[in-house]
């Protein structure tokens, strides 16, 4: 039924052909347009977080921003791989993968090396690695459904999972991205907006300490625009961190009852 090995015919997705010919939804000139999901330009998607999604992990969290759904599990601190050199401080190991059905066209569900290293860099500065010498903390993320801004949802969700696992951190890490479309800045872009963007800006920060752990800017930006974008992102990050914190408080208050 699953096809004998080697005889699997080549297949194609029927929706691919229409996707290419679809006209641009955003015009180059500055006319009034609405975002695909009807949000304001500076309005994030509603965020939902839940800790303790995976029982067999030390800590875990599930996050849902519109159609973007991710699960992050944290394992450890546990023994480092045999081949690893001795280390005074703990190690952080990150991995991000996608399900085959996450993207509109079926993917291979392979590892996203680039996202894994971005996640590692975003979290590294926030974790107090000195508290678990010689051992490794594994942060594994699975994107169940990709709806845009996947990496920043993964980063925020991962910091919540780390908190759930009881790994010491300086602060929760919140991440927000922003797309530049023509003259407009749209925060928390969906997949469709990301594919048409002229530039993007992502900030990962620890809002209580007002410190940035990661900042990435792609595309063409003018200085005033960068300033405006960064301010928007930082505001959104501190609001996001409040939602994350209330989720953690909720989880502990229900477990105490």
């Amino acid at each position: 039924m699953a096809g004998k090995p080697g005889t699997n015919p080549t297949t194609y997705s029927p929706s691919m052909a229409t996707g290419k010919t679809r006209p641009r939804i955003f015009k180059d000139h500055d006319v009034d347009w609405v975002r695909p999901d009807g949000r304001g330009f500076h309005q994030c998607r509603p965020a939902f977080f839940r800790t303790g999604a995976v029982n067999s992990a030390s800590g875990s969290a599930y996050a849902e921003f519109g159609n973007t759904k991710v699960i992050v599990s944290v394992f450890g601190p546990r023994e480092s791989k045999k081949a690893m050199m001795y280390s005074d401080i703990g190690r952080l190991n990150c991995n991000v993968s996608y399900t085959t059905f996450a993207t509109p066209v079926r993917g291979q569900g392979s590892d996203y090396k680039e996202f894994s290293s971005m996640l590692h860099k975003a979290l590294e500065g926030a974790i107090i690695l000195e508290t678990f010498p010689k051992t490794t903390v594994d942060v594994f993320a699975l994107v169940l459904e990709s709806g845009g801004s996947d990496l920043h949802v993964v980063i925020s969700c991962a910091s919540l999972a780390l908190a759930d696992a009881g790994i010491l951190m300086y602060d929760l890490v919140a991440s927000v991205s922003l797309s530049c479309l023509g003259k407009n800045l749209v925060i928390d872009p969906v997949l469709e907006e990301e594919s048409y963007q002229d530039g993007s800006l992502t900030i990962t920060c620890m809002p209580s300490r007002y410190e940035v752990t990661q900042l990435s800017i792609t595309g063409e930006w003018s200085t005033p625009k960068i300033n405006e974008g960064m301010q928007l992102c930082l505001d959104a990050c501190s609001k996001l961190a409040m939602i994350m914190r209330s989720c953690l408080k909720e989880a502990t208050s229900t477990s105490q009852e």
Partner: peptide
């Protein structure tokens, strides 16, 4: 996920069902 294929010569009026089970590191 549904995709389209050309059926094989032996069974021109049959489709195919491919089942795969994954255990990602999160589980």
């Amino acid at each position: 996920k549904m995709e389209v294929m050309t059926p094989s010569m032996e069974s021109p009026d049959e489709g195919c069902l491919a089942i795969d089970f994954h255990m990602p590191p999160i589980c």
